[in-house]
Simulated assay, not measured.
Amino acid sequence: MKVAQKVAIVTGGGGGIGGALAERLAAQGARVVVADLDGAAASAVAEAINAERPGAAVSAGGDVSDETVIAGLIAQAEKEFGPVDLYFANAGVTGGMGLDISEDVWDTTIDVNVRAHIRAARLLVPGWTERGEGYFISTASAAGLLSQVGSAAYSVTKHAAVAFAEWLSITYGDQGVRVSCLCPMGVNTKLLYEGENSGDPVGKAATGAVLAAGNVLEPAECAEIVLAAVDAEEFLILPHKNVLDMYRQKGADYDRWLRGMRRYQASLLAGTR
Rank of each mutant, 00 (worst) to 15 (best):
S138I: 04
R119Y: 14
R131V: 01
E67D: 09
V114D: 01
G96I: 00
G144D: 05
G92V: 00
V125Q: 12
D107H: 03
Y135N: 09
A71R: 07
Q76F: 11
Q76N: 11
G92N: 06
A121D: 07
T139K: 05
Q148P: 07
G82F: 08
D111I: 06
R115A: 03
A143D: 09
S151A: 13
E80V: 02
A143G: 15
R131K: 02
F88Y: 13
A121N: 13
E80Y: 08
H117M: 00
N113K: 13
A77H: 03
T94I: 08
A116Y: 12
S65I: 04
W128A: 01
D104T: 02
G95L: 01
F88T: 07
E67S: 11
T94H: 12
S151L: 02
V105P: 03
G82E: 07
T139W: 01
L145R: 14
V114Q: 03
V114H: 08
T109K: 06
Y87I: 02
Y135K: 10
S138Y: 13
S65N: 05
A143I: 02
I118K: 11
V93M: 04
S141N: 00
L86A: 11
E78N: 09
S102G: 12
A143M: 06
D104Y: 07
A116R: 10
P83W: 06
G134R: 07
F81G: 04
V69Q: 15
T94K: 12
R122S: 14
A121G: 15
Q148S: 15
A152N: 14
V84R: 10
R122H: 14
M97V: 01
A142R: 08
D66V: 00
T94Y: 13
Q148I: 05
I70G: 03
E80I: 04
S147N: 11
G92K: 05
E80L: 03
L86E: 03
W128K: 01
S147M: 05
D66S: 07
A140K: 05
M97Q: 02
K79A: 11
I118T: 09
D107R: 06
R131L: 04
A89R: 03
V84S: 11
A116F: 11
E103A: 11
V149E: 01
V149Q: 01
A89F: 01
H117L: 00
V112P: 15
E130G: 14
A75G: 11
E78K: 09
V69T: 15
Q76R: 15
F88D: 06
L146P: 10
G150I: 06
D107P: 01
T108R: 15
W106P: 07
T108M: 15
V112H: 13
G96F: 00
T129V: 15
T109F: 04
S65Y: 05
R115Y: 05
Y87N: 09
A116V: 06
A71D: 06
